[in-house]
Design a protein around this nucleic acid. Sequence first.
DNA 1: TGTTATCTACCTATCGATAGATAGACAACA
DNA 2: TGTTGTCTATCTATCGATAGGTAGATAACA
Lengths: 180, 180
Amino acid sequence: MSKLEEIIETAETMIRERGYNGFSFREIADVVGVKSASVHYHFPTKGDLGAVVARAYTEKFLLALGDPEVEKVTPKKLIERYIEACRYAVVTQRKMCLCGMLGAEVAVLPDEVARETKVFFEKNIAWLAKVYARMANVGAAGALGRAYGAMATVEGAMILARTLKDPDAFEKAVKQIATS
Amino acid sequence: MSKLEEIIETAETMIRERGYNGFSFREIADVVGVKSASVHYHFPTKGDLGAVVARAYTEKFLLALGDPEVEKVTPKKLIERYIEACRYAVVTQRKMCLCGMLGAEVAVLPDEVARETKVFFEKNIAWLAKVYARMANVGAAGALGRAYGAMATVEGAMILARTLKDPDAFEKAVKQIATS
DNA sequence: TGTTATCTACCTATCGATAGATAGACAACA
DNA sequence: TGTTGTCTATCTATCGATAGGTAGATAACA
């Protein structure tokens, strides 16, 4: 992995653990094994780095989810897949969703980072809405509402699990969105 | 209002807007009209201040919710009251829930602040569970699950509304927990 | 020989925290 | 009634550490 990729990955890990105001160029440089000036070479400002990290995260996350309208996979399975992705983040990795963290801090983010964070939520909600729309008993408006609800619940569930230091809090919180 | 009270109130406002790492003794001092050393007089460390703010917030919030088991008020009305409290925070005040913000940042909080944040969630979940348990079609285990789900959803809904800059995102997200 | 990437060395600004001083309120006591 | 001591709340000034960021030299490499 190149230093550039290492910087992005390290930044993602740190933001997900400690937030945008909780990491520094020096810390990233130490982990990667370079000097902070070298991090500034790749990302002139902290906002540049944050925006790239958020965009890469969004891309990676959506790629893992796959096509929400592929007929071979039932909507219920897809929702379960979505929850599993978040479960892995908080239970296995013990970290927040990157954009859940950034979303909480949105008022102190540089514009370009706030924009990418918004895009993450828009794309995730669109994905979820497409899945819910495939369910027999759900209309278009209902699907969008469910998508917002599910998105909010998984983000909140990650906060709960970390604060209560109880991975099972995540399971309890998301149970209702899993059982359509 | 005494300087002490002003400090606590200002700190709450700043944490809810910008997070625990997003405010400083100097900023609070400037708003209140004293020097930062005077804030340290009342709260020797940042953790001391954060813990007092979190505890006061929890107390205030639960007081506003009232008794979850008073028979004159239906469970449905109580859940609506809960949502209304959060709606006021995010739509009118345009701020996060204090403990939603602190919960996201829990990994960088001093122990005493993390503890108070945890207490907030425990008490809120207990309150919600008592309300849900009064509903005809809900058992004890189901009530607890619903409480976790509702707690997670409102916190996530506040993040969504702020990040998407759309107050209506809050409404869409919490709709399902309102309609039992 | 350029280009890309990294380095050393530094900047200014701010952080949380502390030391030491002071003005005024209040109480104890000769 | 004065005097003495203590407490509260604030001040000025400063600490070491760290923040984000930059200029210019140097190294690696196509």
